[in-house]
Simulated scan of single mutants.
Amino acid sequence: MSTIAPTIAPRLRLSEIAPAVIQSEIRAMSVECDRIGGINLAQGICDTELPGVVAEGATDAIRDGFNIYTRLDGVQVLREAIAAKLQTYNHLTVDPQSEVLVTSGATGALYASLLALLNPGDEVIIFEPFYGYHVSTLISLRMKPVIVPLAEPDWQLDLDALRGAITSNTRAIIVNTPSNPSGKVFGRGELEAIAALAIEHDLFVFTDEIYEYFLFEGIDHLSLATLPGMRERTITISGLSKTFSITGWRVGYLAASSRWISAIGYFHDLTYVCSPAPLQFGAAAGLRQLADSSFYTDLASSYEAKRDQLCAALEDAGLQPYVPQGAYYVLANAERIAGANSSERARALLRATGVASVPGSAFFRPGLGDHLLRFCFGKRPADLDLACERLREF
């Protein structure tokens, strides 16, 4: 009697999640834009000039020999500067010795926090349109993103939809305000509703506040951790990448209860070791020396003007913009551009104008967002002027 040998799976193979991983549309459009020498309004590179005090602080640190590993939680001068900034701007009191962690960008802060506080299989609520890296990070950690759509055109929170998305497996909510890609700023009422549900169901809330200084028309930033009952369960994440135009430096931070910091710090150290040492000193110099200047109000005013400039050009091009309240992105209706989906429309626009955008589908569940493109206005004035001119010609 013959026997059939059992089929043995090859050991040299990708992980279970790797086959589903594809290059982000943001990166793909940037690569294509570089290939043709276009103007990149796709990636949030923020290639404007960094403040002089930030550059000088970093170069001084290099010359002074601060080029080795830092403490697990970052250099003390930066942690103290972050704590002071959180107190004055966010109205959040934290201990720089036990409740602040300097990270490798805001992405590193979220990654380490999820590793420390959640488990594979846990459900995490994300609002749509979403930042793709938030969703991809959850998937890479074998966690389950649960998408709650916000209502067009103002991206309002549907509290019933949020409540209905919470199950016995829900462990956390991610809130990005001001938001990438929509520029939505969650209002006090919305944040209070999220806080009430988080308390009721005993959930963590991870807040991505990286665009906290990019606010328009007098809107104020509200950190969810300052609401009653939220201090212990909120991981407040931000960084200096956007504010100081140093996206390549990878200097981020988080603030959380000392109850969580040690575990988060362990996983950040395991994955990243530390944010680059001399660049931490540059960031600290910026936080300290610009605190009492007009830098932050000037920043918001200049970006509001850039927003208005780009939105006007998009309107003239027949690409109706969803005018953002914050951050430095605009979602625009691209249905007038030929193409079966937003990916084809983004590439058609790039070919016609040399202006790169991001397909709207990158920020939605499959089959959604194909009527939208995202444009970034965090650009040097000359580049933004040229992009707007080309869009108007289109």
Results as ranks from 00 to 15, higher is better:
M1P: 12
I4D: 12
A5I: 13
I8S: 14
L12S: 12
L12V: 14
L14M: 10
A18I: 12
I22T: 12
Q23V: 10
E25S: 09
I26Q: 00
I39R: 01
Q43S: 11
C46P: 09
C46E: 12
T48E: 15
L50W: 03
V53P: 12
E56H: 12
E56W: 08
D60S: 15
D60I: 15
I62K: 07
I68V: 07
Q76S: 10
L78C: 01
R79W: 03
R79V: 02
I82L: 02
K85H: 15
L86P: 05
Y89F: 03
N90H: 15
L92E: 14
T93Q: 08
S98G: 03
E99P: 10
L101M: 02
A112R: 00
A116Q: 04
G121K: 05
E128P: 14
P129R: 13
F130I: 06
S136P: 03
S140W: 09
R142Y: 14
M143G: 08
I147R: 06
E152G: 15
E152Q: 15
L159G: 06
L162W: 11
R163Q: 01
R163E: 04
N169Q: 08
V175A: 02
N180G: 01
N180H: 09
S182M: 01
G183Q: 06
K184C: 08
V185I: 04
V185L: 03
F186M: 11
R188Y: 10
G189N: 14
L191V: 11
L191N: 12
I194Q: 04
I194M: 04
A195R: 05
A195T: 04
A198N: 00
I199S: 08
D202T: 11
F204V: 06
V205T: 13
F206G: 07
T207M: 08
L215Q: 09
F216T: 12
F216Y: 15
F216I: 12
L222S: 07
A225Y: 08
R231C: 10
E232M: 12
T236S: 08
F244V: 10
S245F: 03
I246Q: 07
G248A: 08
W249C: 01
V251W: 06
Y253A: 07
A256G: 14
S257C: 07
S258G: 11
W260H: 10
S262W: 04
Y266C: 02
F267T: 11
D269F: 01
D269P: 00
V273T: 14
S275N: 07
Q280K: 05
A284R: 03
G286Q: 06
Q289F: 03
A291E: 11
S301T: 01
Y303K: 04
E304L: 11
A305W: 02
K306G: 01
R307I: 00
D308N: 15
L310T: 04
C311K: 04
E315A: 03
A317N: 12
G318M: 05
P321M: 10
A327E: 09
Y328N: 11
Y329C: 13
N333M: 07
N333F: 07
R336H: 12
G339E: 05
S343N: 11
A346H: 04
L349W: 00
L350R: 14
A352C: 14
T353H: 06
V355R: 02
A362W: 05
P366W: 08
G369E: 11
G369V: 13
D370W: 07
D370I: 02
G378I: 09
K379E: 13
P381F: 03
A382H: 15
L384W: 08
L384E: 05
L384A: 07
D385P: 06
L386K: 00
E389M: 08
R390N: 01
R390A: 03
E393Q: 12
E393H: 10
